[in-house]
Design a protein around this nucleic acid. Structure first.
Lengths: 188, 188
DNA sequence: GGATTCTTTTTACATATGTTAAATTGTAGG
DNA sequence: CCTACAATTTAACATATGTAAAAAGAATCC
């Protein structure tokens, strides 16, 4: 175990007892760079927490191009929201950018915990609410600032991202082509 | 009361008893077009559900321009997420586009309910998770599709939006200028 | 109903971004 | 160390979008 435990306890206010209850339902797994942990079109029955490593979530657009729209790092949650919330096939693919250590839990087991333990239910609520806040900030950032600013704030937030993620993937995340990203990088 | 009750019971799986408990903490209020229900820089202590009417959430960018990034209609939740989740001053302003009927509840009262009633805690969790799914879809839509497609899908989703919202606000929501929106509208 | 104000569209021009392809640089394997 | 392949940058051109200002169209008020 490790710092995720502290994250759970400090950030989400879980008591040690209920953390242990939660953790007793976790399986620790490792997966290799390049693997897909969630694949487009499929139904998945697990939710993951990233203990170590980096992942990306991408969508294939009408032209067949991969559009990266989320990067996940240590402490983040991996789930296909369409899957989890509405039991629909996943629209996105989640791919491992590095070798990854994960905490895995069954969706149905997690829902059981939520429905029987009020502290865990509120843990799940806060998990979702913090995700909401982060997503809102991303929507705002995408709408308010230009690609150059977003690029700079991305590398400020994740200083090692340039070593971990290819520029083409970062460009699609920023909503621009790789050529434009190269021009931005050449500027400063 | 009205169709929001059915929404709560059918969509979020609330039992009638717990809906009544929730509703006993609600104050029904009406506000007039043009008012600000949440203002930038302030701390707010309420959460609202839209019974009738339309609102928009906007942010003022570095050039002093209002950037609309969310429209809310019947059934939607109004809260400053930064306020609600992290007790920080609101970055956004929420303005009423029409005369509006709202359900109002104190943030602290809502948290009390979440912490004492497991069904309501899971109601709150689902509220946030469904919001997550919607936001993810918007992020995806913004990244994958061009402004014209997004414009068409917006009026498909909210057919009356052109009667309720000004084009300049829709343009900023789409991330383009009003001139470009006019060109798009002239095309088809 | 006419004047005033607000909203939307159109025009002309400058600039930024996309596209395609070539050149360069970096990386991994034998 | 060399080769082959992958990733990134650069170049040239076409297109789309932004800016600023004017024109046209709607709505409001007296």
């Amino acid at each position: 175990m490790n710092s995720i435990k502290e994250l759970f306890i400090n950030r989400y206010g879980l008591s040690p007892e209920n953390f242990d209850l939660f953790y007793s339902n976790i399986t620790e797994v490792t997966r290799s760079k390049g693997e897909e942990i969630i694949s487009k079109g499929e139904i998945h029955h697990s939710v993951y927490f990233i203990k170590k490593g980096a992942v990306r979530s991408y969508y294939i657009n009408a032209d067949g191009k991969e559009i990266t729209y989320w990067f996940g790092f240590e402490g983040d949650v991996i789930a296909s929201l369409g899957n989890f919330v509405e039991s629909k096939p996943s629209l996105e693919t989640i791919e491992l950018l590095e070798d990854v250590e994960l905490w895995k839990i069954d969706r149905s087991k997690l829902l059981d915990l939520y429905n029987t333990n009020i502290e865990l239910a509120n843990f799940g609520r806060q998990l979702a609410e913090i995700g909401l806040l982060e997503m809102e900030q991303q929507i705002l950032l995408n709408q308010v600032t230009d690609a150059k600013t977003r690029y700079l704030s991305l590398i400020e937030k994740h200083p090692q991202i340039l070593q971990r993620v290819k520029l083409g993937q970062i460009a699609s995340y920023l909503g621009i082509t790789q050529v434009t990203l190269s021009r931005i990088r050449a500027q400063k």
